[in-house]
């Protein structure tokens, strides 16, 4: 059986690729956000150069 362009198999592959792409994009955003939170909190907890002296 020849595979037409709209075969269900293509839809399934597309759904998997699209889903993976969206998950990876969301992870990039999450890691960026987490980095900002961690750096900001550690920055706040750490004494400034003047306080250290």
């Amino acid at each position: 059986m020849a595979l037409s362009r709209q075969h269900e198999l293509h839809k399934r592959r597309f759904s998997r690729n699209l889903g993976l792409g969206l998950v990876l994009g969301a992870l990039v955003a999450l890691f960026f956000g987490l980095t900002i939170v961690k750096v900001t909190n550690e920055g706040a907890a750490r004494p400034t150069a003047e306080e250290a002296n």
Partner: peptide
């Protein structure tokens, strides 16, 4: 029907979910 046409590695996103 789906299993009859599915090959390994052709699962959709919903299947992994």
């Amino acid at each position: 029907l789906r299993s009859a046409t599915a090959d390994a590695g052709d699962a959709g996103f919903a299947d992994f979910f």
